[in-house]
Each structure stands twice: as C-alpha cells, then as structure tokens.
C-alpha cells in the first residue's frame, strides 16, 4: 500500500512535465529519472543473467531432493533449506498476521485519538518499521535465552521474522482499513451491529485486498532475510527435514550465504542455482499478492 501511494505521488510531477511546462530544467530532471531507472534495471539484469549462467548447470532435480553435502558438492541439494524456508514462513505468518491485523484494527477502529497509550504504540510502530533486521534477531535471541528455548529452532526463527514484519503488516493493514469508506461502518452501526460485528463482518472483509497485499509482500521480505537468522545461529549443515517447532532448521538465504563463501566452484554454482529458486519463490509470492488484489478489487 505504501509503495502504491508513493508511486502515484511521484508520477504526478512526471505527467506535469510531459504535458505542461517543457522547459529545459524539467526535461533534464525527467532524463535523470529515466537514467536512474535504466541503471537500476540494467544492474538487476546483469546480476540475474550472471547468476543464471553460473547456476544453470545445477538447476536440476538433485537441487530439490538432495540434502547439502560436504563431500560431494556436485550432488548436493537445498532440500532442507527449501523445506526450512517454507516452514519458517508458515509459522511466521501464523504468528504475525493475527497479531498484526488485531493490533491495526485496535489502533484504527477502537483507540481514540486522545488515548495516550495508542499514540505511544503508533509512534513506536512507525519507528520499528525502519529498524535493521539484525536487531530483531538479537531481540529474539534474548527472548529465547530468557525463556530457555534453544535459539536455532523453527519457533525462535519465526518469532524473529514475525517481529521483523509485524510493523509492516500493522502499517499496511491500517492503510487498508482507512481506505474503507466511513459510510460502510456508519451503515452497519446504524442497523444495530456492535463495533466488533462491524469490524469482523464489514470493515475487515472490505479491507482484505490491501491487507493481503501488504502481508504477502512482508512475508516475501522475511523469506529473503538471512541476518536475523544468522544471528540466532542459523545452521549451515542440516541433512534432515524440519519436523516441528523446536526442530533445527536452515533456510535458503543461510544456505546460499554458506555455499557462496566456499572455495570450491561446485558450491558457488549451487549457491547461484539456489538463488534462482529463492527468486522464483519470492516472485511467486508477490504474484499471488497481485492476483489477490486484482480479484478482490474487480469483484467489488
């Protein structure tokens, strides 16, 4: 949500430049904008092509069904990492989405503007969205030590990632709720529904496209995150499937990080191939977000 508003804001002066004042300065500015866009896309393209060329030799079935191997990098795979990533993301979503949506609903629908506590929470949520990822890793590590949980487990990893994306989910959910017309709430309340019924039956359903988009984008960010998990002592050699909340695990970014630092070429090819898989996974998640948004927007 935040990005779409930013886009619409930034396209306004562009259009003005295209239609109205075509003086030299605005043309130079337009050129600079296009230049930076082209540079960004060019750099991304080079990176992608480079990774694909390096990894294409290892984009095979073994990458998906085999575990990592120290002795035979040519046959090693990212099975534990792929399953670990999926499992951690599911647990992260289970932790972060209900909490995030509930918090946003409270702040947006129930808390009054004068409520000091609500304003305090609001201020902190805004600030937390900008905190570096590794800080959340430290937070989760501290939490795990206090509670007495082993740090490198699915649950603690998911808690770190959930904390990381919680502010993003809260902010995007609030944006989505704010976009729901006031009349819908007023109509519901006028017909005798309680504020809670209004929220669960009218406001939240109407806000689903925005909430889903924000949430999935946040989850795909969590998917590519390595820093907080590395801090928790991310395992780099795991040859079993994660099978519970307290199971040890590795994720794609951790595995790629480990492979990329090895001296044998075979490991770096693996890293490139696994990067492509991660990229496809994240793109697929983003595509789902777009589909959900389009589906709900047209059906209304």
């Amino acid at each position: 949500m935040a990005t779409t508003t930013a886009e619409s804001a930034s396209t306004a002066p562009l259009q003005a430049a295209a239609h109205g004042d075509r003086d030299s300065r605005s043309l130079v500015f337009l050129g600079l904008l296009w230049g930076s866009l082209a540079f960004g896309i060019f750099a991304l393209g080079v990176l992608l092509v480079n990774t694909f060329i390096e990894g294409s030799g290892r984009l095979d079935l073994m990458l998906f069904v085999n575990y990592t191997s120290q002795l035979f990098p040519g046959k090693a795979g990212a099975r534990a990492a792929i399953l670990g990533s999926l499992m951690v993301i599911v647990v992260t979503a289970l932790l972060a989405v209900p909490l995030g949506v509930a918090a946003a609903s409270y702040l947006e629908e129930f808390a009054s503007r004068e409520n000091r506590f609500a304003r305090f929470v609001e201020l902190n949520v805004q600030n937390l969205a900008a905190v570096p990822a590794i800080i959340y890793g430290m937070l989760a590590a501290g939490l795990a030590v206090t509670v007495g949980l082993p740090r490198n487990t699915v649950l603690v990893g998911a808690i770190a990632l959930a904390l990381l994306i919680l502010p993003v989910i809260i902010v995007s959910t609030r944006e989505a709720l704010r976009a729901v017309p006031r009349e819908i709430r007023q109509g519901s309340l006028a017909l005798g529904a309680t504020p809670m019924q209004t929220l669960t039956r009218q406001t939240l359903p109407a806000a689903i496209p925005g909430i889903a988009t924000g949430t999935i984008l946040a989850l795909s960010r969590a998917m590519g995150e390595a820093a907080p998990l590395l801090l928790l002592g991310g395992l780099v050699f795991v040859t079993y499937d994660p099978n519970g909340l307290l199971s040890g695990f590795t994720t794609m970014p951790i595995q790629i990080f480990d492979w990329a630092g090895r001296s044998q070429i075979a490991f770096r090819e693996l890293a490139a191939a696994a990067s492509m898989v991660l990229l496809v996974l994240v793109l697929a998640m983003n595509a789902v977000a777009i589909i959900i948004r389009n589906k709900f927007t047209t059906s209304r």
Partner: peptide, 11 residues
C-alpha cells in the same frame, strides 16, 4: 541427526 552451524569460534 547432526547439524552444524558456523557462528565463529567465539560465538
């Protein structure tokens, strides 16, 4: 099931 992490010697 043996798993290996690389937090560094100190870590």
């Amino acid at each position: 099931k043996i798993s290996v992490g690389t937090s560094g010697t100190g870590g």
